[in-house]
Design a protein around this nucleic acid. Structure first.
Lengths: 352, 352
DNA sequence: ACAATGTTTCGAAACGATTCGAAACAATTT
DNA sequence: AAATTGTTTCGAATCGTTTCGAAACATTGT
């Protein structure tokens, strides 16, 4: 890298360094004569301004940090795309960090991000603790994404998880299911707690009791979905429908069902969360709640930019919380429960 | 963010700013008395050194850029994990960029990365052109990842794609297949070109002619895999086995096969590339070549660190090329071809 | 022709660290 | 007690920008 500085450009163009700066940033009028000279000099040297020097001076880096528990969870890459798309518009770059579901690592990452003077942080947090309170008090721009912390004022954007849980449940109830099970992820993570709430609410509204043995707490892993599926489908009276609170547990659940040679959806209906390429090519194609992952990322970044730009003042906006609707995509993993399927068939035969 | 500078720490500790720096970086002996005072002052102010100022002075940012065509392709998140793991060890952060398979965007990203004075770049390139030549000549630390450019000296790490294509093909040949098809991705991307080479070589070694209609050039999309699958399985004499050169086309291929009600592996064997959680839970569980994605990322980062550290001198190391072996994971989407299955069964009946 | 006004242009001081070489001090040898 | 050596400490310059205020210049109205 041939490294030229503004000084070199100035010298070559025969102007002062201040003028070059003014030209580049358009901060002051520069005569046509000098404009031409400077442009020429810059081209000749293939000069590119040093952003780190600039950052030091202006106190902004045009970089934000994004920390997620695990990029390897297909939900996050889509979010990242959204974030980048919104970031690119404003000339922002993003430093990506994996916290690996570990509060300690998360803290370390945040700390190095601050040292690097990022202008803000997007955080899918692992920690429920109010470890974030001090950040927010210091008015550091931060917006929470997907996972929302409890008990502190904050800005955040996530799927309307309660609504999504509710919709999924209503879909099953609408099909005639009563023995509906729910395989939750770690309830300390807001999405899973809220999806469970939505489930509970829908069940209550329909006056269906939630049986204890139809509630399983997993840990978001394939393995835990598998175990939950195995256990539940071996019950004396197994559920006729199961909701898996994330895509990994869904996968585990499907494996359990397949292994037990239980037919889906004939014997058990299943709905999961997240929609990826493979979910619709699965056998059977899976009914899921799709999260607006890309949009989630875009909105979060836009909110963060808002905070970054915010002079003082707009306190109201600072703690905005956005919840985007999930979308139920009905495919072939859900159907009427076994008992009703016959009724359904008879009816159709008679009716149509 | 209460922002304190080294000057504040120095003042509070009653020492010079140079001494604080010496203490922090351990560059010179600092007496116990002052050490204590400085540590105390730093703690009192919750001081964290400003990395951007530091970067400006020392000419290193401890940040690298990574540009991939699309994080949304599940292969890359795993690579990213590998990169981050290796980066973290040395205190490096990574700025992630999506080129979106677009040479223009890639160029823009590279350009902003340089402006930000990243210490090096990891690049899964879209462009086959020698647009990278000048970078390399300028000795800018760069290592290519997965996709390797042609015709210029470079450092790179990727899967041994030719070997992988060869292994996949040999697996099918070993099962007795002769009419083997290959659905390639964009051949301008080295992995696909090389996988195809491996396929050709294996076929040649086995003295099996590659039929034209059994070679399809896709574009890495699900759609193209689907189309290729449809077309080939509708041939008068369809192939008895198909290799899909990436995970997306594999998915499309499976859809085509399902739609045509062709049974896999009974009527057609299929092997794909990349191994994710869903591949083994597919119906049938898919035989694939797994790429050592995490390792790929780790090694690439380590090579990059090597280049960054390299004083002048070690020219040999500069253009090192690493090829890591893929691993064939035989599952249930491959079996003996239809004709032989009967023979197989009869034999078994008689023999066992 | 001169003052008043509005543009361009520039010199110099930051931003917050590192680093060089000299100054200050202590310990040792003569 | 002076000279020598080695260790701490510090002042000041520097990295490559931005930005403030003043200087230089051109333009206009009187």
């Amino acid at each position: 890298m041939a490294k030229y500085t503004m000084r070199d450009v100035a010298r070559l163009a025969g102007v002062s360094i201040a003028t070059v700066s003014a030209y580049i940033n358009g901060t002051a009028g520069v005569s046509e004569r000098l404009t031409a000279k400077i442009a020429e000099a810059m081209a000749a040297l293939d000069y590119h301004p040093d952003q780190v020097a600039r950052s030091l001076k202006v106190g902004r880096t045009q970089v934000i940090g994004m920390v997620v528990p695990d990029v390897t969870n297909a939900f996050f890459p889509e979010v990242i795309r959204g974030v980048e798309d919104a970031a690119a518009v404003e000339g922002y770059s993003v430093i990506l960090c994996n916290s690996n579901e570990d509060a300690e690592q998360e803290k370390r990452h945040l700390s190095t991000l601050f040292s690097r003077r990022v202008d803000g942080v997007l955080l899918a947090c692992t920690d429920t603790a109010a470890a974030y309170g001090s950040l927010i008090q210091r008015r550091f721009p931060i917006v929470f994404l997907d996972r929302i912390p409890q008990g502190i004022p904050h800005a955040g954007v996530c799927t309307d998880n309660e609504g999504a849980g509710h919709v999924a449940t209503r879909h099953l109830i609408g099909l005639g299911h009563k023995r509906i099970a729910f395989v939750a992820g770690n309830l300390r993570h807001s999405p899973h707690a809220e999806r469970l709430n939505g489930f509970r609410k829908a069940m209550q509204e329909a006056n269906i009791a939630v049986r204890d043995e139809c509630l399983r707490m997993g840990d978001q892993s394939i393995e835990s979905g598998y175990k939950a599926g195995l256990e539940m489908m071996r019950l004396a009276v197994p559920p006729t429908a199961i909701i898996a609170s994330n895509n990994r547990m869904l996968l585990g659940l499907m494996r359990a069902v397949n292994e037990l040679k239980i037919r889906c959806p004939q014997q058990v209906s299943i709905v999961g969360f997240d929609d990826f390429a493979w979910t619709q090519h699965f056998t059977p194609p899976l009914t899921v709640i799709a999260q607006p992952a890309h949009e989630l990322g875009r909105k979060a970044m836009e909110m963060l930019l808002g905070q970054i730009r915010a002079g003082e003042g707009n306190e109201t906006k600072r703690f905005e919380n956005l919840r985007l609707a999930g979308e139920l995509r009905v495919r072939e993993s859900t159907a009427r429960p076994p008992a009703l399927q016959l009724v359904g068939k008879t009816r159709r035969k008679g009716g149509d």
